[in-house]
Design a protein around this nucleic acid. Structure first.
Length: 271
DNA sequence: ATAATCACCTGCTCGC
DNA sequence: TGCGAGCAGGTGATTA
């Protein structure tokens, strides 16, 4: 469910409800996520004020004085604000209660997500210290893609989805950006010109920014932290459209697997 | 170092 | 209607 736009939508949805609130309760019904949740999370969080909610890559960061709660939604996770007292459903694994009556509820059927506590600077964390730049920041541009791709033989799609190069480009938006840039996703990353990478970087920024404006892409039953659905789905050009007509040239869209991930593209428009 | 594959888990869709 | 196979938004760990 969550790619970067969905995570950012979630961040914007939950922050207003919990900012400057204090944690009064933590309820862990299922600690077995991708990594086991710290068992003493209750003791750690109790009484702490949420100063703000940040995002780095697809991680949400609940910032407190002593440290941050790092939340990743994996493939199927979501965070919702509910009112205290609502009974939990099957995959509602964690509740964090606040002194204003709000409860932050973590739901994740597949449990690929994670909830971790970190003290100190976030960029020292082992999962964060080698991450590439944010795609919407000035640090990320076509020149970076061009430089970092030299000599690389891996498909360009794999390359732009590598979080060590740039974060936040997941399967949906990698497919979409490569279509819009007219680049064959199977092409070796090191054999693409600077000119084309400049275009690709601009398009990645544009696609992600537009998807965020739309509140993300509604897939399955994704809803943001405030319960509103995302409307980017209707803008998708290739993702989920294998076998259908290219919106640009009417050719039949092809599907291949790249790095175990479904890849849809137009043979005529993407070279 | 780089690149490809595996692993984690549940739910849903598809073909027979 | 039932059942196994395959696939799904991510990404760290493991294997060549």
């Amino acid at each position: 469910m969550p790619e970067l736009p969905e995570v950012e939508t979630t961040r914007r949805g939950i922050e207003p409800h919990i900012i400057h609130s204090h944690v009064i309760d933590v309820c862990i019904r299922q600690p077995k996520l991708r990594w086991p949740i710290t068992e003493n999370l209750q003791q750690i969080l109790s009484g702490l004020e949420i100063q703000r909610v940040d995002r780095r890559a697809k991680y949400l960061l609940l910032i407190t004085g002593p440290g941050q709660l790092i939340v990743h939604l994996g493939m199927s996770g979501s965070l919702r604000i509910i009112q205290a007292g609502q009974s939990p459903a099957k995959h509602d694994h964690v509740d964090i209660g606040f002194d204003n009556g709000c409860v932050l509820r973590y739901t994740d059927p597949r449990r690929f997500g994670s909830i971790m506590w970190n003290q100190g600077a976030i960029d020292q964390h082992r999962l964060f210290c080698n991450l590439g730049p944010e795609p919407l920041s000035d640090e990320f541009d076509g020149e970076l893609l061009f430089q970092r791709s030299r000599l690389k033989k891996q498909p360009v799609k794999t390359f732009i989805m590598d979080g060590h190069v740039v974060v936040g480009v997941g399967n949906i938006y990698a497919n979409e950006a490569l279509f819009l840039a007219g680049i064959d996703p199977q092409r070796a990353a090191g054999r693409i010109s600077r000119q084309r990478y400049l275009l690709l970087a601009r398009i990645i920024k544009e696609v992600l920014a537009r998807a965020i404006e739309c509140g993300g892409t509604t897939l399955k039953d994704f809803v943001g932290g405030d319960g509103k659905p995302g409307y980017f789905q209707q803008s998708l050009q290739v993702y989920g459209r294998a076998g259908k007509q290219c919106r640009n040239c009417s050719a039949e869209l092809q599907e291949v697997r790249i790095g175990q991930r479904s890849t849809v593209f137009c043979r005529r428009c993407q070279r």
